[in-house]
Design a binder for these strands. Structure first.
Length: 457
RNA sequence: GUCCCCUUCGUCUAGCCCGGUCCAGGACACCACCCUUUCACGGUGAGAACGCGGGUUCGAAUCCCGCAGGGGACGCCA
């Protein structure tokens, strides 16, 4: 069998939708699984739009998610150009073929594709007007995911608008023929369009490609498929919020596909090895941000520190957080190292670590109230200050031992010292391990903060 | 209105093709408990599903039919 050629054909709308990302992903996975070719084709026949900038959204998102294309804009290929706006001559030539064969005609200034078969008039309830139908035989689709599907295309349809621009159905088929696409993997919303496409392939005497219509992603709450405006719909958003692309990709893989055992978190190489079209589900999947967050956390926890620092830095820079340009890289790294195991997402980092970078941090009122419920916390804080004045700050466990001994001596638990100390040093009741925090902060700053709280009362 | 697709816990799903091993397994979420230095992580446990109705069969989540529900398409958008 000849080499598999699949394509992802987005139109540059300025947004990269999560559903598009998954369609791209399944195409990419199939290409990689079969050793085939993944083509990127830009469907920009709508000239109204500011292309260059919108194109970058597509390139950036695909690249960020790790889906490299073998043919397409930027990388070239034997079947270019890969932007439909640059392929108008081809469309003219193909249109001429239909015209010559008597399979296209002009009406109302537009060019229509002519179906073969007996014609009859009927009232269309949906459009509230009389329409011309054609007695046609059904187009048969042996879909890799849905199985045997038949649908009859029974109305002529426009292939070139009256303004001279060809429409989607036409260019899509022409390009699939010209680019020798073997498998069309796309959303189920195109299943009804497929009969039009099949008719066109046949009219051109071209082989009909294999089809695989993947289920749609439904919006989190409320009815219907996910659209651009829905919460969590845009890839950009995840990129901005510091999600790890490998986590998002892993999550997307599992939306409509699974390895048939109980594995969920798995390296992309393993997904490539196992992925196949018949294994894709037939039913739509509802998007679940909680599960995505969980997947992201799983990846975050095992991210090597170097990459974690990189990610955090990038996020700080995007957000304009003051820590972005922090001059002491080693210190920043230490702060991040003790925070990584505790946070649930990169986007928590600015708030989580703020007090490491300024002496001017607020004391959380609720946290304070909690701490002051038990005995005289200031007495304990004074004892702790005395201890810390001479304690060894080089080891978390050493510090911890010392504090534990102090607590035991005075009939308290470690936690009784921990709570007030944390409040003094960080202003909150959440954060990294207390002694790790001390170590990173250093003796001087730790003591200064404790003294400040004691003085303020 | 017409056509097409789909239907297992709240959600993502395994099982369905090749009926008995399924009083249905895993994960997320939720709840409880444990661990613990706060917060997380982790551990243990609980609740939670075969849409409904008919058939076929000794036996159906699994096969067949109907219904209902959900989704999609019906554009000189892609």
């Amino acid at each position: 069998m000849s080499q598999v050629r699949v394509r992802f054909a987005p139109s540059p709308t300025g947004f990269f939708h999560i559903g598009s990302a998954r369609t791209a992903l399944f195409n990419w996975l199939y290409a990689r699984h079969t050793g085939g070719v993944f083509v990127l084709r830009i469907e920009d026949t709508d000239k109204e739009r500011n292309s260059e900038q919108f194109l970058n959204v597509i390139y950036d998102s695909l690249t960020w998610l790790g889906m490299n294309w073998d043919e397409g804009p930027k990388v070239g290929g034997d079947y270019g150009p890969y932007r439909q706006s640059e392929r108008t001559d081809l469309y003219k030539a193909y249109l001429q073929k239909l015209l010559d064969a008597g399979r296209a005609y002009e009406k109302d200034g537009a060019i229509w594709f002519k179906l073969l078969g007996e014609r009859y008039e009927v009232f269309d309830d949906h459009r509230k007007k009389m329409v011309t139908k054609v007695k046609n035989t059904p187009a048969v689709i042996e879909d890799h995911i849905r199985g045997h599907v038949e649908r009859t295309e029974d109305e002529d349809f426009v292939i070139v608008r009256s303004d001279g621009n060809p429409v989607f159905h036409f260019v899509n088929v022409v390009d699939d023929i010209a680019m020798k696409i073997t498998h069309v993997i796309r959303g189920e919303d195109h299943l009804s369009n497929t009969s039009k496409h099949v008719e066109l392939f046949k009219a051109f005497g071209a082989p009909v490609p294999e089809y695989a219509h993947i289920p749609l992603i439904l919006k989190q709450d409320g009815p219907g498929k996910m659209s651009k405006r829905d919460k969590g719909a845009l890839i950009e958003e995840y990129q901005q919020r510091g999600f790890l692309p490998e986590a998002l990709v892993n999550f997307l893989c599992l939306l409509g596909w699974n390895p048939k055992d109980d594995r969920e978190k798995m390296p992309i190489e393993e997904v490539i090895r196992l992925f196949d079209l018949p294994g894709v589900n037939q039913s739509n999947a509802r998007f679940d941000e909680k599960k995505l967050a969980h997947m992201n956390l799983a990846y975050l926890l095992e991210l090597p520190l170097d990459r974690f620092v990189e990610q955090a830095r990038a996020y700080f820079t995007r957000q304009g957080t003051f820590a972005a340009g922090w001059p002491d890289a080693a210190y920043l790294r230490e702060v991040l190292a003790i925070s990584q195991p505790k946070i649930k997402g990169i986007d928590e980092l600015p708030a989580y670590t703020a007090y490491f970078f300024t002496e001017d941090f607020p004391i959380d009122a609720k946290a304070r109230e909690k701490v002051f419920k038990k005995g005289d916390p200031f007495a304990r804080l004074r004892e702790l200050a005395t201890l810390l004045a001479t304690a060894d700050f080089s080891s978390d466990t050493g510090l911890e031992e010392a504090i534990k001994q102090l607590a035991e001596k005075n009939g308290f638990g470690f936690g009784d010292y921990q709570a007030i100390a944390r409040l003094a040093v960080s202003g909150t009741n959440v954060g990294p391990s207390l002694t790790a925090m001390f170590r990173v902060m250093g003796r001087e700053r730790t003591l200064a903060r404790i003294e400040r709280m004691l003085a303020a009362g």
